[in-house]
Design a binder for these strands. Structure first.
Length: 433
DNA sequence: TCTGGGGTCCTAGGACCC
DNA sequence: TCTGGGGTCCTAGGACCC
């Protein structure tokens, strides 16, 4: 396996991930119909095979299942994302043992570049079965593996491995005959292709493109014309032309969202403002963890669209920050000032959220610790605060400008000396906590 | 009564500039 | 009365993903 010219991708995917995690710690859930529920136990975010067989759709509300729950004894579990994150890490660690080039695509999926593994594994299928065996043994999680020369095809191979028991959890397109692939592709709906969602699927069907094979055989220029470059790329990938490289390093997030549905309807501005402060705190923590600053915060609220008896209202607004910052207080006050403008009395609110936008690396931000450090007491406080910040960012990163009439700090950037400003209004205030 | 949360990329159109 | 052309940047919205 592993010819020189064509890359070979593997896609490893845990079956019914959240449900499988719960089962790993509670074997009595094995072979029972199980769903894992969203926040507030609202709707199904993961279903066991037994539940899927009953026709329960992804996102189905729990309270709609009452009959099925009675008839079949469906077990509903509240989600435990800490557990799932931990299990995910264990799986990814095992997979790194199979290839130095991995891309953790989502909490339960991982691409591997397995070029040149022919010296180790007789065939991709042998490797895939070994992965399945080892992951099951070490984590009690069942996985399926797909192999192909493009990521989109690897996803499709994985899909086939899951759906057709004949494949025993591993499907390899790289060694499959053209005829057999065609046979499969003619029987898979075009909507099952990675990158073809509900809208595009509907439009393709209307154009008489129903199956994977139909899309593969379509004219690339026509597809580009009608659907854009993304879908054209998908078509090429179906033909085995790899257009999507492995993204092995995770770039910092370009935006950070924090939002929640409320457990009950809220009407007062105070309660919602409280929630928004909490969301900002959570998002700002993520922001600092990836060493970013944000330049704007978007705040949004809306009523419950499912309550037809209620008057509906939804609104959002983006509030620019005067400087890019990771300071919780600045972001909160911006978010709340936006909230004040969009909040209207007299509605039943169900959900609110914030988005940190316009993110940038914080390598050259700067600020002041105190506006007035003339006194000796303040100078001491400044020095203590500097220690705190140094502990967080490391000695090398932080630069102290002065402890005279004013105390300023800045983050050293790699190739430039830090820029200073002496105008208080231009720099974030009071970074020290 | 009860219906999730967090991301990315692309594109069209407007503002602005020379 | 006639009323350029080309470029960049930003944003909102639409599509997709898990």
């Amino acid at each position: 396996m592993g010819t020189q010219s064509q890359p070979i991708f593997a896609l490893v995917d845990v079956n019914n991930f959240y449900v499988s995690c719960e089962r790993a710690f509670n074997p009595r859930l094995q072979n029972k119909p199980v769903v894992v529920l969203s926040n507030n136990d609202g709707c199904a975010v993961a279903r066991s095979a037994e539940v899927k067989a009953l026709g329960v759709k992804m996102g189905a509300p729990w309270f709609h299942m009452t009959d099925l729950i009675k008839q079949h004894g469906i077990i509903g579990l509240s989600s435990n994302y800490t557990l799932y994150g931990d299990m995910s890490n264990r799986v990814m660690t095992i997979l790194r043992g199979y290839s130095p080039h991995v891309e953790v695509y989502s909490i339960d999926e991982c691409f591997l570049n397995v070029d040149g593994m022919g010296g180790i594994w007789e065939t991709p299928t042998v490797m895939g079965q070994d992965i399945r065996k080892k992951v099951l043994k070490w984590t009690a999680l069942p996985v399926c593996v797909g192999f192909a020369t493009s990521k989109t095809l690897a996803k499709l191979a994985n899909h086939v491995a899951k759906k057709l028991p004949l494949f025993d959890g591993v499907c390899d397109f790289t060694t499959m005959s053209e005829a057999r692939m065609r046979w499969l592709f003619e029987r898979i709906d075009v909507g099952d292709v990675w990158g073809v969602g509900r809208r595009i699927s509907a439009r393709l069907h209307a154009m008489n493109i129903h199956t994977v094979q139909d899309l593969k055989d379509a004219s690339p220029s026509m597809i580009r014309q009608s659907f854009g470059v993304v879908t054209e790329r998908t078509l090429q990938e179906l033909r085995g032309v790899s257009c999507m490289a492995m993204d092995e390093v995770v770039p910092p997030r370009r935006e950070i969202i924090s939002s929640r549905s409320f457990g009950k309807l809220l009407t007062s501005a105070d309660e919602i403002a409280q929630a928004i402060s909490t969301y900002v705190a959570r998002a700002a923590e993520k922001l600092r963890n990836q060493r970013s600053v944000c330049g704007a915060v978007h705040v949004f609220i809306h009523t419950n669209p499912f309550r037809e008896q209620d008057r509906q209202y939804s609104n959002g607004m983006t509030v620019p920050l005067s400087v890019q910052t990771d300071d919780n207080r600045l972001i909160v006050s911006a978010a709340l000032s936006g909230f004040d403008l969009i909040f209207k009395e007299g509605y039943n609110y169900k959900k609110a959220g914030i988005v940190l936008m316009n993110l940038a690396s914080n390598t050259n931000i700067q600020g002041t610790l105190f506006n007035d450090s003339k006194t000796r007491a303040n100078s001491v406080a400044v020095m203590n605060a500097m220690d705190t910040i140094n502990q967080r960012y490391g000695q090398d990163v932080l630069h102290l400008a002065s402890t005279g009439l004013s105390a300023r700090w800045s983050m050293k950037s790699e190739n430039r000396s830090p820029a200073y400003t002496t105008r208080w209004e231009e720099i974030p205030t009071a970074y020290a906590r």
